[in-house]
């Protein structure tokens, strides 16, 4: 297992370097530079030059990259050119919001997807299966930002049960924190629930055809036992994998949902960085999300190998 882990880490390393190069150079291609964005319409060339020197923007791109990556390795992602706040601090400040949003979305998705996916597989070909299959297709087709809009319309504006946006820290008021996060989590988790549901159904169908499940049924075991103990446990591996991969994608999907519900997370931070042409902040958030995405996929791979002893650790 250790050899497999090291092997996977070695494969991930060039990807991480690639992410850092893309994160750095891609934002340098954004039209207009930070200095002009900071100084507004009226400024002298001397002021602009002084600022460029302060932020190292007057040096060659390769030098800027070398300096930047050296600092990144030491945990210094630079300073936001707009607020002056260290980029890492800004990201870490917003991280709990996005992590909570993603965690609640995955939780909601699993709660909905697993029972429905199992039901569809067990009742294959029946109306229940058809309904769940269609629900799954609908789930991956509904845009999260429209689902979010409809949830606000229904639960905030008409029924008045839940707030339509904003964020309250868990440490300040846990109940209000949850009330503010329910609708965003539902909106973000809808598509993930659909993907997990489809995978659960498919994995269960594969396992239900296996001899050991047929034997368990033939021995007269109650459905609860052969479905959950024999079939579902063995169908779990691809479900775990797809859940992990989806959790990574949610980091990106949160951009739109955070915008709709005014949640101060990483997604909102990257949008602000784009709109303010804040290079340091944008490359920091893009790098951070990219690295998180790779690490999540790495963890999923390791979990997969750990769960399924048939995978060779080579």
């Amino acid at each position: 297992m250790l050899k497999y882990t090291l092997n996977r880490l070695l494969i991930a390393l060039p990807v991480l370097v690639g992410i850092s190069i893309i994160s750095f150079f891609i934002v340098r291609l954004v039209p207009g530079d930070t200095v002009t964005a900071m100084l507004g319409a009226h400024y002298s060339e001397e002021e602009a030059q002084a600022l460029r020197e302060t932020y190292g923007l007057d040096q060659s791109l390769v030098t800027q990259y070398a300096l930047w990556i050296g600092n990144v390795v030491r945990g210094d992602l630079g300073q936001s050119a707009f607020t002056g706040q260290p980029v890492l601090a800004a990201i870490l400040e917003r991280l709990p919001v996005t992590v909570q949003l993603v965690a609640m979305s995955v939780g909601f998705a699993l709660l909905m997807a697993l029972p429905l996916g199992i039901l569809a597989a067990v009742r294959r070909g029946g109306p229940g299966d058809f309904s769940v299959t269609f629900l799954g297709l609908l789930g991956i087709s509904v845009p999260g930002f429209w689902l979010g809009t409809l949830l606000i319309l229904g639960f905030s504006l008409y029924l008045g049960w839940l707030p339509s946006g904003g964020f309250i820290m868990w440490s300040v008021d846990p109940v209000e924190n949850l009330r503010h996060m329910i609708l965003p989590a539902l909106a973000l988790g809808g598509a993930v629930a659909a993907v997990i549901m489809r995978m659960t159904r498919s994995a269960m169908l594969d396992v239900l055809g296996e001899d050991y499940v047929k034997l368990a049924r033939a021995k007269g075991m109650p459905p609860r036992v052969w479905i959950l103990k024999h079939a579902f446990r063995n169908a779990l591996i691809p479900v775990v994998t797809i859940t992990g991969i989806q959790a990574g994608y949610l980091l990106g999907g949160s951009v739109v949902i955070e915008q709709i519900f005014s949640l101060p997370g990483i997604g909102m931070l990257s949008l602000q960085a784009i709109n303010n042409r804040d290079y340091a902040l944008l490359q920091g958030t893009v790098l951070f999300v990219g690295v998180c995405f790779v690490l999540i996929n790495l963890l999923v791979d390791l979990l997969y190998a750990w769960l399924d002893p048939r995978i060779k650790y080579g």
Binding site: V15, G18, L251, G253, G290
Partner: peptide, 23 residues
Amino acid sequence: RIMDILFSFPDILLALVIMAILG
């Protein structure tokens, strides 16, 4: 490796950054 790197960004975030560059 190039594909792996492109795969390492959530799709909407990558599209957003490209759009920020291209306008």
